[in-house]
């Protein structure tokens, strides 16, 4: 226990204590400025009731679901699997090179990748428009959610690819060989032989990337939630409520709702995982 205590202490101070404090602030009318900044009062569950009636909150809840579904559950998951499946047969040198290139997008600082996409998608000087011949299209303004979903798929696919690569290595080659001999198609092989072996990996991967995506702050760097809240996912909504709107109590209550949503998703995952075994 003595070995673990210092680590636990630090985690308690910087992870658990702030979480509890967020719960408390969420029950008050704490604001950044004005009288409520000096003497915030307990308002009970008012913030939560207000949130449920707030059209902007509902909007960002929906956008977060769309973002997670589009870029994580579908985008990163499927692209990651297809890449892993494809690279499985490639020569080791090629495989390593492609993995490194995909990994680049995952490890670069979010400021850097956000700037890159900003420049590539720019209306006037952007490379994408000159490549597609679509000059004058302001992608981040006209298609903000689509841009964010493509961006996040690009950004996060590496993790799914690497996880599925190591999962595929555990599928017995003899079974794949049998499938080939009986003339099963690629899709049949994946569905009947590969998937049962990697079901746990698929669940774990989907959980991790969904939660990371739901909590991701990089949309703020690309669109800042705009135009007119059209790409305001929950982390961006919370940030803007707290720092631009000054509604610290309200923002904390929403943080708590996001935290609860995370836990619900995780609980569903555990239930699915346990049902398997």
């Amino acid at each position: 226990m003595g070995f673990v205590a210092p680590a636990l202490l630090l985690i308690a101070v910087f992870l658990i204590f702030p979480a509890l404090w967020t719960i408390y602030i969420g029950l008050t009318n704490y604001e950044l400025t004005g009288p409520n900044a000096v003497a915030p009062q307990l308002v009970g569950i008012d913030n939560f009731v207000n949130a449920l009636n707030d059209a902007l909150f509902q909007n960002s809840l929906w956008l977060t679901a769309l973002f997670v579904l589009g870029s994580a559950v579908i985008g990163q998951n499927i692209l990651g699997f297809v890449l892993a499946w494809t690279l499985r047969k490639a020569k080791p040198g090629l495989r390593r090179t492609v993995e490194s290139l995909v990994l680049l997008a995952w490890i670069l600082p979010s400021t850097v990748v956000a700037y890159l996409w900003f420049a590539v998608l720019d209306r006037d000087g952007g490379t994408l428009n000159s490549l597609l011949g679509s000059e004058g299209t302001a992608w981040l303004v006209e298609y903000p959610m689509l841009s964010l979903i493509v961006f996040n798929t690009w950004r996060g696919t590496a993790f799914s690819m690497l996880l599925y690569s190591s999962a595929l290595a555990a599928v017995p080659p003899s079974q794949l060989e049998t499938a080939r001999v009986v003339g099963a198609s690629g899709w049949q092989t994946v569905r009947d032989i590969v998937f049962p072996h990697i079901r746990g990996h698929v669940l774990t991967n989907t959980l991790l990337i969904s939660l990371w995506t739901a909590n991701d702050f990089s949309p703020f760097l690309l669109t800042a939630g705009g135009p007119n809240h059209a790409s305001e996912t929950l982390p961006v909504f919370i940030y803007r409520q707290a720092l631009e709107g000054g509604q610290l109590g309200y923002a904390s209550a929403i943080s708590l709702l996001l935290l609860l949503a995370n836990l619900v998703v995780a609980a569903v995952y555990l239930w699915l995982l346990r049902r398997k075994s």
Partner: peptide, 17 residues
């Protein structure tokens, strides 16, 4: 597992920290 995977929304800890 849950503590470790950086799963919690970072933005939720911003104000207390």
């Amino acid at each position: 597992f849950f503590l470790t995977t950086k799963m919690l929304p970072v933005v939720a800890g911003l104000l207390p920290i």
